[in-house]
Lab assay of single mutants.
Amino acid sequence: ETGKELVLALYDYQEKSPREVTMKKGDILTLLNSTNKDWWKVEVNDRQGFVPAAYVKKL
């Protein structure tokens, strides 16, 4: 879809709370919100949640 910003997972991340999502290094995720410098909201496999901003980079 146009207008979607994507990020690349630089590291594996295992969710530690229900508000977070698990990702694997190399995953491409849809970026939903990056206003917080530490935690970015992403969508992966129809799930939305937060990942550490340092673990992903914008494509």
Rank of each mutant, 00 (worst) to 15 (best):
E1D: 15
E1F: 06
G3K: 15
G3S: 14
K4M: 12
E5P: 10
E5Y: 11
L6S: 08
L6D: 04
L6W: 14
L6Y: 15
V7Q: 01
V7K: 01
V7M: 05
L8K: 08
L8R: 08
A9Q: 01
A9K: 01
A9T: 04
A9S: 05
L10H: 04
L10N: 03
L10F: 04
L10P: 00
Y11K: 13
Y11T: 08
D12L: 02
D12C: 06
D12S: 08
Y13S: 01
Y13G: 00
Y13R: 03
Q14Y: 14
Q14G: 07
Q14I: 14
Q14D: 14
E15L: 07
E15C: 11
K16N: 10
K16D: 06
S17M: 08
P18S: 12
P18A: 12
R19Q: 13
E20G: 12
V21N: 04
V21L: 15
V21Y: 04
V21M: 13
T22C: 06
T22V: 03
T22Y: 04
T22F: 04
M23R: 00
K24W: 10
K24F: 13
K25P: 03
K25Q: 10
K25N: 04
K25W: 03
G26H: 05
G26R: 02
D27W: 11
D27T: 08
D27M: 14
D27F: 05
I28F: 06
I28E: 03
I28W: 05
L29F: 06
L29P: 01
T30D: 05
L31F: 03
L32N: 02
L32M: 07
L32R: 04
N33S: 12
N33R: 06
N33V: 09
N33C: 11
S34N: 08
N36A: 09
K37N: 11
D38V: 14
D38E: 13
D38Y: 15
W39K: 02
W39T: 02
W40V: 06
W40A: 04
W40G: 00
W40L: 04
K41R: 11
K41T: 08
K41M: 14
V42W: 00
V42M: 02
E43G: 08
E43Y: 07
V44E: 04
N45V: 10
D46I: 07
D46P: 05
D46K: 11
G49S: 02
F50R: 03
F50V: 07
V51K: 00
V51D: 02
V51N: 00
P52H: 02
A53K: 06
A53Q: 06
A54M: 14
A54P: 08
Y55I: 06
Y55K: 06
Y55S: 11
V56G: 01
V56Y: 01
V56N: 00
K57G: 09
K57D: 07
K58M: 10
L59E: 04
